[in-house]
Amino acid sequence: MEVNITINGSDHASDVEPRTLLVDHIRRTVGLTGTHVGCDTTSCGACTVLMDGKPVKACTVLAAQADGSEVTTVEGLKGADGLHPVQQAFTDDHGLQCGFCTPGMMLVGASLIAENPDPSDDDVRWAISGNLCRCTGYINIVKAIRTAAARVAESSIGS
């Protein structure tokens, strides 16, 4: 079947099998491999992308369900003026080790900040509680998302 999905601002029209998962579509058909797969029970969040601005687990969405929507993957986080504040904060605060969970974590972080400009430690922990990390113990992920939020808030006051 024919699906049209806007991924990171470019339109992708493709003919897919109806059963194709969005994550497989993004990785195999479109060729963007920054979105990862870490489980088969919608538990880990490695596959998280933003669909019309909201985080979804792309292993549990059919490509067909994403027809007509705007999807942002990790490859689309960076803007014309450089890294997204969340990306910058993840490296500054050592929020990643192996980096496998990182795309999903950053996308959840970016969407949290868009909704809540000053998230508390608990707010961040709750927001990322659908995303597993086996390396960091989360502490620096939480720190990075809060750093990014503070930087965004600061720059919007400044501007």
């Binding site: 920054g34 979105t35 890294l83 990306q87 490296t91 990643l96 980096g99």
Partner: peptide, 21 residues
């Protein structure tokens, strides 16, 4: 020192096994 490996990983440019095609 800030990690060198981060640059590729935060932009989705890591090269994990399943990414090899």
């Amino acid at each position: 020192v800030q990690r060198k490996e981060d640059a590729r990983l935060i932009e989705g440019q890591g090269n994990f096994l399943d990414d090899i095609d």
